[in-house]
Structure formats: structure tokens, C-alpha cells
Computed example of a mutant assay.
Amino acid sequence: MSHAMRKEENALHDNDLGRVIPCNELDWGDPIKWLRLGLNDMVKAPLISLFYGLVFTIIPLLITYLVSLTENHLVIAPALVAFMMLGPFLAAGLYDTAWEFEKGHTPSLWHSIKAMHRNSVHEWAFAILLLVTMIFWLRVASIIHALYPPYVGDDLTELIPFLAVGTAVGAILATFVFTISAFTQPTLVERKVDLMTAVLTSINAVWSNKGVMMLWAFIILACVAIGFVTYFFAFLVIMPLLGFASWHAYIDAVTTKRERKYM
């Protein structure tokens, strides 16, 4: 399968906000390649994969339990979506592990945990950005819920307007989060750059490869949906796989001065 090719034109250019690292032109078959390479990383690092899989499984289970205590079940879905928005930040350890494999090193769990401190100021700033987005989504979800009639009849069609509005707002916000975060965290993990440079680089790479990245987003969405219908237990495997695959997506999408070496 061919490697990504350098794009002559990018969607964004350097500006007053930050530098924009050029992107590559992606192939339609690349998302499958990323999953294959991610699976290979999982097999080579089973204990690290299990640790992060447990983190991604236990947290949404805990959120579901705590929210259920409020007897307001309609906010469970927004709360879980909010958690998924923090996924790119939590996946920093998986990016570090995949990077260690690329460098020919033996990864360790502690080394992966310390990855968030490698570019700590901007990585925590990114976490705050995602947290603010999460809070905004929860507030919007609360407003939608408040505007909805406090009763639900036997006819489920009464829920359609509520679900339609919530889905539309969620889709818009999810698209925004995906665009600004697809390659931000791996950029911050690997390179000593500021947050705006990493965010603009992610926006540029996603926008310049809209078709392929839309396919990748749908794959991620399908995987997350599988996790939801399995009461999050599928996240034990799915989230480490997506984390490792996202690192390989970053390798293909964002240009470097030298050719990357990975199997």
C-alpha cells in the first residue's frame, strides 16, 4: 500500500495564531492500514493495552452509575459523550507506546504515563480546552432537556424532536472536536510545539483530507457505538486499538523532515 504523499497546497497557512505543520495526502485505504498497525502494537504491548483499556472501560461505567443516582437518565448519554471528548488526551500513553516501538525501544507503562508531562503546559492546556468543550456540551444538553416537556407518553414518536435536536447538536460538536483533536495530542506528545500550532496542524490535516478523515471518523464512531451497546466492555479492546491506530494516522498525515520507520 502506498505511503502518503506530500500535498502542494494546504487548507491553512502560518498565521498570527501559530505555525501550521504541512500535511500529506492520504489514501482511502489508509484507515484500514492504521487499524492493522494498531492491532500489531496491541499484540506487542498486551499489558499496557489492557491498562488503558480498563481506564476507558471503568470511567464510563462509573459515570453511568453516578449519573443514574440522580434519577435523570436523559443526561447519561451527554455525560458519556463528554467523556469520549477527553479520549484524545487520555490516549497520550498509547501514542507514547507506539512511538517507542517505532524507535525500536521496549515500551513501559510508567514511560507511557509520563508522556503527558513531555510537553506538559500545552498538553494540559489542550485538556482544559477539551474540558471546556465538554462542559459546554453538558450545558447545551441540559438546556435541550429543560426545554423538552417533562412527560413522555406511550408513543415513542414524542421523543423524536428531542432526539433529533440533541443528535444534531451533538454531531456538530463532535465534528468540531474531531477536527481540532484528531492530530493535536500526538503532535504535542512528539514535538515541542505550542497548543495553537498543534490545533491548527490538526485542522489543516483534517480539512485537506476531508474524505479520508470522514471515513476515519465513521470508523471511530462505529467502534464507539459497539462499545456502548456492549455496556462499555468492548472498550477493553477497542480504545487501545483506536489509540494506537490514531498514532499511525498521525504519522501518515503530518509531514516530517525524515521518513518514518514503522512496521
Rank of each mutant, 00 (worst) to 15 (best):
A222L: 14
T157A: 00
A125G: 09
H117C: 08
H111E: 07
W216S: 04
K103T: 06
L90T: 09
I59D: 06
G243E: 06
V212P: 01
S120F: 13
E102K: 13
L80W: 06
H73I: 10
S142A: 15
R139F: 13
L163G: 06
M84S: 11
R6D: 02
Y95C: 01
W137C: 03
S49M: 10
P31H: 02
W124T: 06
M116L: 12
R258C: 04
K192T: 14
V199G: 00
G29D: 09
M116V: 15
F162V: 14
L147D: 11
A141K: 10
Y65S: 06
R36W: 12
E71A: 14
K44S: 13
V177M: 00
I180R: 02
I76K: 05
V254A: 08
A79S: 15
S208V: 01
L200R: 12
N40D: 12
R191Q: 15
K257M: 13
I135Q: 02
H13Y: 12
N15A: 01
L94C: 09
E190H: 13
E9D: 08
A253D: 05
H111V: 00
M1V: 02
M5G: 03
T106V: 08
W99D: 10
I226F: 04
T70R: 03
A234M: 02
A98Y: 04
L215W: 12
A245R: 04
A164F: 14
H248K: 07
V43K: 14
F136R: 00
T197V: 08
I32G: 01
V152W: 10
P150C: 12
V206I: 03
I220Y: 03
F176P: 02
V189I: 08
V189L: 03
L66D: 01
K7N: 11
I48A: 07
K33L: 10
A91W: 10
G166S: 15
E71Q: 15
C23G: 14
K114Y: 08
K33S: 06
W137F: 15
N40G: 12
V189Y: 02
G29I: 05
V212C: 01
V177I: 13
L69T: 05
L35Q: 01
H73T: 09
P60W: 05
H145I: 15
L242C: 07
S49V: 06
M213G: 05
I220R: 00
A174T: 15
R258K: 14
T133I: 10
P107W: 00
G87T: 14
F235C: 02
W247E: 02
L242Y: 08
V75R: 11
S142L: 14
F51T: 13
Y151V: 15
S202R: 04
N204W: 09
L215K: 07
E25F: 03
A164G: 06
I58Y: 12
A141I: 14
Y148N: 11
T197C: 07
V55I: 15
P78T: 12
A253R: 03
L130T: 04
P149E: 11
V165W: 09
H122E: 15
K33I: 04
A91C: 07
E190L: 14
V237T: 07
A182V: 12
L129V: 10
A198I: 09
